[in-house]
């Protein structure tokens, strides 16, 4: 199988990833591969293990067994901050902003790994410090511009409306300059207009930053419209994978979502 090397079409791949919490098997021998520069969707009923898989990829959980490789590097045992440094950024299901920090500072924290100064530069306020801060602030403003948050840059993050908080979280993730962006239920709690705007926004950032995107989503219209490929988890196991059209007609998927009886009735 292809393990996702730099010359490979896959940026991220997992091989027999298993995650066990005590007696509960949250992921069972899941194989997956995410195509470079693609948008892949991860769907499944509640409790299927979608967020657990995200947490394994980002280092929040250490898989019980199996292997995850990102750009040819095994990342299964790395802590989250090192995985971020390798080029994977994420957002969270229940927004996790730095609430008491300004919108601008949230994005500046996202730029942490690109800091080009040391403690002595801070203490002596060297030229390097001023230039780096200036540089970072300009870059942060660009990101806020793209995210439509530039007018709110000095607001505290907690005071933003819901949709804007989602966009800020994405902007903060983009600030780490990722190659792969993981979005955990980006449309949760959004109305139709906001969801449509989010689709445009995701296309925009994907093209602009050459991103690969992997997203968890419950809004089927959103997933089917946006993703090139979809992977379905149920009870910790992968039950289907393929383009949206195929997934919609896949019996195992319909069964997982609607139950066995419904699947038969529909057939």
């Amino acid at each position: 199988m292809n393990r996702g090397g730099n010359d490979s079409p896959y940026i991220l791949s997992g091989h027999k990833v298993t995650m066990q919490f005590g007696g509960l098997v949250a992921l069972r021998q899941v194989d997956f591969a995410v195509a470079r520069y693609g948008i892949m969707g991860l769907i499944g009923p509640n409790g299927a293990g979608k967020t657990t898989l995200f947490n394994c990829i980002t280092g929040n959980h250490r898989p019980t067994s199996g292997e995850i490789r990102f750009q040819e590097i095994g990342i299964g045992s790395l802590p989250p901050y090192r995985i971020t440094r390798l080029g994977i950024a994420r957002t969270f299901q229940n927004i996790r902003l730095f609430k008491e920090m300004s919108v601008l500072d949230n994005v500046l924290v996202g730029m942490h790994i690109q800091i080009k100064q040391g403690i002595s530069d801070v203490l002596f306020k060297t030229k390097r410090f001023s230039e780096d801060e200036q540089n970072k602030a300009e870059k942060a403003d660009q990101l806020l511009e793209i995210s439509g948050l530039i007018d709110a840059r000095s607001e505290l993050a907690k005071n933003l409306p819901y949709g804007a908080q989602r966009r800020l979280e994405i902007a903060r993730a983009l600030a780490t300059e990722p190659a792969l962006l993981l979005l955990d239920e980006p449309t949760a709690g959004m109305n139709l207009n906001e969801t449509d705007a989010l689709i445009d926004f995701i296309h925009l950032i994907k093209d602009r930053f050459n991103l690969t995107i992997l997203l968890i989503e419950h809004d089927m219209k959103f997933v089917m419209g946006l993703c090139e490929k979809i992977m379905v988890l149920d009870h910790g196991q992968k039950i289907a994978e393929g383009p949206p059209g195929e997934i919609q007609d896949n019996e195992a998927v319909i069964e997982a979502y609607l139950g066995r009886g419904m699947a038969r009735a529909e057939a």
């Binding site: 929040n60 901050y81 994420r90 902003l97 730095f98 920090m101 924290v109 801060e133």
Partner: peptide, 21 residues
């Protein structure tokens, strides 16, 4: 500076701070 921002970020949300590198 980045030091103060990193500290406050850890105070506000450890998971998100680690996810920011």
């Amino acid at each position: 500076s980045y030091l103060g921002r990193a500290w406050v970020a850890i105070r506000e949300d450890e998971v998100a701070a680690e996810a920011s590198g």
